[in-house]
Amino acid sequence: MSQTRPQSALANRGDVVLRCTGLHRYLGEGEGRVHVLRGVSFEGERGKVCAIVGPSGCGKSTLLYLMGLLDRPDDGQIELNGQTVSNHDDVARTAARGAHIGFVFQFHFLMLEFTALENVLMPMRKLAKLQPAEMEARAHALLGSVGLGAKTHRLGTQLSGGEQQRVAIARALANEPALILADEPTGNLDVKNSAMVFDLLTQLAKENNQAVVLVTHNPEIAQRCDLTRPMRDGVFV
């Protein structure tokens, strides 16, 4: 968990992992078509935790899906590790997601028919960079670090909302992604667990030189981030 990757050690602080320029996104069809993102530019830097804040419905999740390559912008560019990926085909974008991005969804967190451990193993098995035994060890360690070491074999259905959310965070970290995107990672957590999850993300950003972008409504959390970007009606203000 806390071992430092060689390339991270060499990288300068301030390295830009993610660069978005002039993103536009329309949602809905016909009459209901809404201009959700109106020219958003953003940079995610290694070793920094950035918070995106703003009122409900201002487009935070929409922006995060674009950054996570889950959705395509109507206009604008997304660069990941210096490569423009917004116009890549599905296979390339999927590969980039698996190798470089860890995503924590706002609502649906886990595959419920699978245990906590299996959920964390899922991205590692796809990437297939580690041996099965190493994957298991890493998954156990990750679950331990989010305080679920004792519940690794619980099915998703047997975990509380907050526990599911913590498993989802462990899963997002599984492949040591350069970029961690988390949509309200502390939304369902009590004060103690919120602090734990936030500390974990900050620690990772510092030790592994990973970029963390999170959406939060929690002012305390936002305040403790390296950077806060307030958003309103589809643009940063």
Partner: peptide, 16 residues
């Protein structure tokens, strides 16, 4: 469908 989205977000391809 949600599980499919989760799998796709983790790098699982359409082929998978």
């Amino acid at each position: 469908t949600k599980d499919i989205a989760i799998l796709r977000s983790m790098g699982y391809e359409r082929r998978d």
